[in-house]
Nucleic acid binder design. Structure first.
Lengths: 218, 218
DNA sequence: CAGCAAGCGGAGCAGGAACTCCGCTTCGTC
DNA sequence: GACGAAGCGGAGTTCCTGCTCCGCTTGCTG
């Protein structure tokens, strides 16, 4: 059964939006470690109000993640639609790393919305799109074909973390980092990789573990 | 002038070693987030005793880092001495990532010993060695020559972070990650990189920033 | 416009982790 | 063996941050 069709009172609705806006800005500017009190202050609201809507800080983060997921989905859609399949790969990876470079909270935000659900729901939303970008470039022969989305995801996670730190000191360094990764991903150059890619189930588990490690990390 | 040539009492010396051993083990097994009380407990010592030797937790971490630096220096020396220069690159990067995969505290430990000194002292110790491994392979023509130690360091930082998380679920995944990185570093395959490598001064600053971000991360 | 449920806010609570303090113990010298 | 300095230990302090509680306020309905 659907829960509570009762709409929020107008002031409550306004405060809810203020909280979401303030949280999104605060996470981007100061990272996910920012305190709940500070978010409430910036929203012009008491912490009590915040906690009535979001029972935990994680729930608030989840809400922001959900909000921003569409932004990444749009990026992926754009990457699916490039003329050259390889350009799609560059666009997707570049777009993700650029966000890491300019948005301090992006790491934790992209991590996943696992807390509320216990399942990697964001991954479920985005993985098919990412997979299409990748397999398109593999069919085209531009992307090495011994890798899967899971391999690329791991690459991005790591690079994102490095980019997050370096971008404060050398803002454009991520472009070089990306360049090296892309060279490692190009097909004509591939040296056989050891082992096998993670399974999809392992990918789910990785996604959850990654999210956890990002969220505990202030 | 040299401070305090006064030697420690025998029991104090024994306790100091116990603390160092316990800390090293605890960091490796449980990560740097482990509490000071727990380290003291495992060392069979009171927290007071620990704090007499190490005025802050960071000082203790620094001491462990210093201890382990030689281990990495040895790895780098081995990498300088391989027959094939490229094998040295593989050995160095592989050795670093493998440690990330098996030692939960390695990230923070390798980060640097910046807190006590305020300067990237570990970097000062290891950078020349790393640079020799790299330039040797570049002269040889096996490693792309448009990169510097700073570029490689960033790559390792990011990969290390990813490896740390994935290795709990897919223990060998780091080998694939490394394989892709190595393909990105091979000379014959290089696509020109944008921008210029970080300067040495920027590299110092990056090292300090990276250390800080690793240490605040529990 | 009256009544009240829904909403508000922020002082305070809880718990976790780094660090301090000080009475007691032990080592090593004379 | 005795004495004092060095060392010990762990209960307690502090600080930080997520979260709760409850008396007051406000928007909505009849």
């Amino acid at each position: 059964m659907a829960t509570t069709p009762v709409p929020l009172r107008r002031d409550a609705q306004r405060n809810l939006e203020r909280i979401l806006d303030a949280a999104q800005e605060a996470f981007a500017a100061d990272g996910i470690e920012i305190g709940v009190d500070e978010i409430a202050r910036r929203a012009g609201v008491g912490v009590g109000t915040l906690y009535r809507r979001f029972p935990t800080k994680d729930a608030l983060i989840d809400a922001i993640v959900e909000r921003r997921t569409e932004e990444i989905a749009a990026l992926a859609a754009e990457a699916e639609a490039t003329d050259e399949p390889w350009a799609g790969v560059e666009l997707l990876l570049g777009g993700l790393l650029e966000r890491h470079a300019t948005d301090r909270g992006f790491k934790a935000l992209i991590a996943d919305r696992t807390v509320a659900t216990g399942k990697p729901t964001i991954r479920a939303r985005l993985r098919p799109q990412f997979a299409r970008v990748i397999t398109r470039a593999q069919r085209d022969g531009s992307l090495r074909d011994d890798i899967t989305v899971e391999d690329v995801t791991t690459l991005i996670w790591g690079a994102g973390r490095a980019v997050e730190v370096t971008s404060e000191i050398v803002p454009d360094h991520w472009r070089r980092h990306l360049g090296i990764l892309l060279d490692g991903l190009r097909a004509p150059r591939a040296t056989p990789l050891p082992g096998t890619p993670p399974t999809i189930a392992q990918g789910d588990a990785l996604s959850v573990a990654w999210a956890a490690s990002c969220r505990s990390g202030r």
